[in-house]
């Protein structure tokens, strides 16, 4: 277990996202001159991340989890809702007002090769955030960056290399170092390991955990890899088609998933013990297009438990006493055993 941060402000959430929305204009129009179709990539997402915890956001690709991260960091335009960081509203802040906040919130990219400038040495790229925020003098910057690169596991002779000369895992270490050199409070990792080999994935995850412990980081960890999230995170939210369908403490959510979608996802996690095969709950069909979401519960066309009510009414996220929230009418009914 990871020890909780001992910061005194642990009660107030570090990051509070409420009813966040993002709609993209589609190139298709209604009629020839009609308005553009709107695609609701993120549709009323609310969650809180407490200081010091690791919060996982999971869901299949296209469900809006990356967009949520981009909305938090103002890299995409939110069409509604609010994001509070230590009580400060982030949605609609100007570039100028964002600058000091960039030090506190950092982002780790999915594709480490793309995220690094191909024409700068690794060391220079890790120094750059310090230059942007005008911290320390040149010598100190170099020293700090070198130290940090060492602590994420790079060796001296690799510091002068260009990104393409490093391996995937090493690149992701550089990206991590670049994000961490500003000593952020919140690190948003957007699928940080999905572009890496499985053996390297484990290294990066362990590194993340170590760094978390050492620096007291708060993590918002976005992934489609449930086993990693289970390993790393204390609380988890499951997204489906731009909405959160279930949210709760990781242990509880993975042991007794309540939403049929979560149940199906968890049943698909491969088990290490070949004798202990679980029965997989197959999901029928593809996720519907967010341009034309189904009426009622968004999951209803693929749900085995769907009733008439699910096709007409939209379920809201209902929290029960144990901090476990689920958006499903049928959730209380015990379903066929999963594991």
């Amino acid at each position: 277990m990871i020890p909780k941060s001992n910061s005194p402000t642990a009660q107030a959430p570090l990051l509070q996202v409420s009813d966040l929305r993002c709609a993209f204009k589609s190139s298709k129009r209604k009629g020839f001159f009609g308005p553009h179709h709107l695609i609701h990539a993120v549709n009323g997402v609310s969650f809180e991340v407490n200081a010091g915890e690791a919060f996982g956001l999971v869901g299949e690709s296209g469900c809006g989890k990356s967009t949520t991260a981009k909305l938090i960091l103002n890299m995409a335009h939110a069409s509604g809702g609010s994001v509070l960081y230590r009580g400060q509203e982030l949605v609609g802040l100007s570039h100028q007002a964002w600058k000091p906040l960039r030090r506190r919130l950092q982002y780790v990219f999915q594709d480490p090769l793309g995220a690094l400038d191909p024409r700068m040495t690794v060391l220079d790229q890790v120094i750059e955030p310090l230059t942007i925020h005008q911290l320390h003098d040149r010598n100190q910057q170099r020293q700090l960056a070198t130290q940090l690169l060492h602590s994420v596991g790079l060796q001296d002779h690799q510091l002068r290399k260009y990104p393409h000369e490093l391996s995937g895992g090493q690149r992701q270490r550089v990206v991590l170092a670049r994000a961490l050199i500003l000593e952020p409070e919140l690190l948003i990792c957007d699928e940080p390991i999905s572009a890496l080999d499985v053996s390297i994935q484990a290294q990066i995850i362990n590194l993340l955990q170590e760094l978390r412990r050492a620096m007291g980081l708060t993590l918002l960890f976005i992934s489609h890899d449930l086993s990693v999230v289970r390993h790393l995170c204390e609380r988890v939210a499951v997204m489906y088609l731009g909405q959160i369908v279930e949210m709760g403490p990781a242990k509880q959510l993975f042991n007794e998933p309540r939403h049929p979608y979560t149940q199906a996802l968890i049943s698909a996690i491969p088990k290490a013990d070949p004798g202990q095969r679980s029965e997989r709950i197959p999901l029928m069909g593809e996720p519907p297009s967010p341009a034309a979401p189904p009426a009622g519960c968004r999951f209803n066309p693929r749900c085995a438990l769907a009733t008439e009510r699910c096709r007409n009414e939209v379920p809201t996220l209902v929290q029960s006493g144990d901090n476990h929230a689920v958006a499903c009418f049928e959730a209380k009914i015990p379903v066929t055993e999963v594991a």
């Binding site: 960091l73 890299m75 964002w98 600058k99 960039r102 030090r103 950092q106 982002y107 990219f109 594709d111 090769l113 793309g114 995220a115 690094l116 400038d117 191909p118 750059e128 955030p129 942007i132 925020h133 990206v175 670049r178 500003l182």
Partner: peptide
Amino acid sequence: HGYAVAVRTLGASPWR
């Protein structure tokens, strides 16, 4: 591209 977006999230100005 990733690197431009990355530098933007670091708080860099358009000039940089």
